[in-house]
Every structure is written in structure tokens, then in C-alpha cells.
Design a protein around this nucleic acid. Structure first.
Lengths: 208, 208
DNA sequence: CGGGTTAAGTTAACGGTGTTAACATTGGCA
DNA sequence: TGCCAATGTTAACACCGTTAACTTAACCCG
């Protein structure tokens, strides 16, 4: 077996795990190849046999993050359209809140420019498609308006992503009542924000 | 007056400007105190007379960013409620798209943990309040539902923030038709995503 | 006007980083 | 068995943020 062997045999996976642990605890900027190598008990350049550079390591973490997010979204019950939509939203926000640093890496944008890591882009698309399919199902069931699918998907994605980002970074004042917040927001999108008493008369006067 | 003077006289502002220029071009991770000092023609530790550390410099950039965002939101015409709400949304997204790297710094979350820079938190709140006031006005005018104000504000903020983040990072497929997208999304939130059959009149859309 | 206090700059240095070059070791296959 | 490719090693380069100790200049006050 591997008793201080020259060839480690498991370096790739072990570096991945170690980096993920550091990411969870301290965020992506705290991930250091040298520190990871030292922790594993290997020299720093050894990591370059398994990752082209630091960014590739981070990309791989983000890829597994998107896969986990996708799994979490796939586990939502798709029976009733409304429950499915709200369930997707709650699952999405719950993922972000349970893995804030991983989520920030996945969507940070600072690292990982769009086209640099094709597998990353694909993983993001795969998660995106779960949400899109749920919306399309809601439309086919007649529950959702027949608005253009890209528009509806962009709206839903923007809403859950924005809420996730704002909550995990503490930007929302009145941060009390979080679970109700996510559900209330989703409901508000579904049912609309304007008063349903009259069909919209646009140029309404505003003073009392 | 000061030609190659020992006391620079304007170092604080000049470092701020230089850092902002680098931020715009290459993002916050490319901001280096040593490089900025060299560019200005001063030694690196001189910057520590004006900024406690690198993070403080970044915080100051973010503060001025929030002030600029607030000004842009304040310039929206507040006459008609619906136009005001859509205008705020468009102005918000336009700001993010015109200053993507600055916007990422302001909301990145990686740098600048919540309570570390009180002036930053206050600047964010000031911008937040412009949006919140607009929503409250819409409620007083009877245009918006009388839902809890924090809920409505969180929803609107999440939506525009999410859309901004997703578009500037290129996460949305079908990224065509951007201006329509922002307006369509805002309208969708206002009028609701579900088919208006539920409010007990003339329902003929049917589907199991 | 002169002198001291202090704000604002200097160089030198510490420990850390990603990354490359050149070399060493090993496992597996012809 | 012998070679080759994969996978490690050490040394080194060019950066980085930050601190300590020192120097210069500006200003205020007696």
C-alpha cells in the first residue's frame, strides 16, 4: 500500500478535498496551492501535474458545486406546478445558504471568466436547465403565462440568485424571517406585485 | 507648486483614482498596492499613511460606487408609479452593466465582510433606501399591493441584483435582447407570472 | 523668527504567493 | 529486462501585503 510512497496515487482527489475544505471555512481567496501541498505532505509543484494552475482547481470546485446544486434541484417534487416552482426556489436558496463560499465561487465572476473553462460552463447550464424545465412544465400545465420561456427563466433565475447573494452577504436589512422571505418572494413573483383590483391604468396620479 | 516634492500632497486621491482605473480594466484582484505606488511614483509603504490596508482601499472604491449608484437611482423620474418602478430597475441594471467590475466589488462579499467597514455599510443602505422609498410611494399611491414593505423591497432588490449579476457575468443563455429583458422582467414581477384565471372571473384555460 | 511636533515620505526586510525549469524516481508495458 | 511516460523533487524568479526604523518637510507656537 502507499507508505510514504513517491507516487502518491490520490493527489488529485486529495487536493480537491483539501481545497474544498479551505473554501468552506475561509473562502476562495484563502485557497493557496502551497498551503494545500504542505498540508497533504507533498511539494507545491506536484500539484501542477494535476491542475494547470490555481484557477483550474477553483474551476473544478465550482463544477462539483454546480453538480450538487443540480442534484438538489432535481430532488424537488414536480407533481403540482405551483409547489414545484416554490420548491425549486426554496431549494436553490437553501443550497446557497448552506454553502455560501462555494456559491460565491460558482457565481463570483471575478475568477473563472465565461469561456475559459468549458466544463464549468456546461455544468452551469445543466443546473440552469433544471429550473428552465420546471418553468416549461408549468407553462404546459397552463399554470404559468405563455410568456417567452427565456424571459420567464431569466426572471426566476435572477430572483433566486439575487436573493441568495444578498442574504449570504448580509446585504438585506431586516434579515429576520428568512424562510418566510424566500417563500414570500416566490409567491409575490407568481401572483404579481400590483393590486389586482383594476387592470393596469398606466399613468396614474400619485399624490394623495 | 509641488514638483517632485517629498510630500506629495495628493497621494490619497491619486491612489484612489489609479486603483479605480485598474479596477475598471482588470477587476479588483488585479489591484496591487505596490503597482499603484510605483505607477504614482512613490514607495509602497507611503500608501499606508492613507489607507490602513489594501482592503480599506477597496472599501473606499466600493463606497464611491454605492454613492454613484444612489445618484443614478435618484435621477429616475418619480411621477408615475409604474414608470418609476421600471425606471429604477432599468437604471440599476444599467449601472451594473456600465461598471461591471465596480459592481462586483460592491457586492462581491468575498472582500469586505459585512461589519468591517461601517461607512461602506451605510453607503449601501443609502442606495437601498432609494429603492425602498420608490416602492413605498407605489404602495401609498395604491398601485402596489399593501404587502409588507421589507418583503416587497427584498423582492425588487433581489430581482434587479440577480439580473445584474447574471448578465455581467454572462450566465444567462440567450443573452440577446438585453434592454427588453430588463423591462420584461420588471413587468413580469409587477403583473405576476401565473395566468390570471384564479381571481374568480372568466376562466376558460383548462389543463390537468 | 526659531525650534519642536508630527504628518508624510524613505529603504530594508519578513513571510507569503503562483509558477517555471531542471532533475529524480517510479510503475507499467513492449 | 529495459525503456518511457507519469509523477514526484528542489531551486529559483518575480511578485505580493505589511511592518520596522529612519528621514524629510511642513506647520504651529512661544
Amino acid at each position: 500500500m502507499p507508505r510514504a510512497a513517491y507516487h502518491h496515487g490520490d493527489l488529485h482527489q486529495q487536493a480537491h478535498d483539501q481545497a474544498l475544505a479551505v473554501l468552506r471555512l475561509e473562502g476562495d481567496s484563502a485557497i493557496s496551492l502551497r498551503a494545500i501541498a504542505k498540508q497533504i505532505g507533498v511539494s507545491a509543484p506536484a500539484l501542477y501535474r494535476h491542475y494547470a494552475d490555481r484557477e483550474s482547481l477553483l474551476a473544478e470546485l465550482a463544477i462539483s458545486g454546480f453538480a450538487a446544486l443540480r442534484q438538489q434541484l432535481l430532488s424537488v417534487d414536480q407533481h403540482a406546478p405551483r409547489a414545484a416552482l416554490i420548491g425549486i426556489g426554496l431549494a436553490y436558496v437553501a443550497f446557497a445558504q448552506s454553502e455560501p463560499n462555494l456559491y460565491r465561487l460558482m457565481f463570483g465572476g471575478r475568477v473563472l471568466p465565461k469561456g475559459a473553462h468549458p466544463r464549468l460552463d456546461q455544468a452551469g447550464l445543466d443546473a440552469f436547465n433544471v429550473l428552465q424545465d420546471t418553468i416549461a412544465r408549468g407553462q404546459r400545465a397552463g399554470y404559468l403565462k405563455p410568456a417567452p420561456l427565456p424571459l420567464m427563466t431569466a426572471t426566476a433565475w435572477s430572483l433566486v440568485h439575487g436573493l441568495s447573494q444578498l442574504t449570504i452577504d448580509g446585504h438585506l436589512p431586516n434579515a429576520d424571517a428568512e424562510p418566510q422571505l424566500a417563500e414570500g418572494i416566490t409567491s409575490l413573483l407568481l401572483e404579481g406585485a400590483i393590486t389586482p383590483t383594476h387592470p393596469h391604468i398606466d399613468n396614474n396620479e400619485d399624490n394623495p
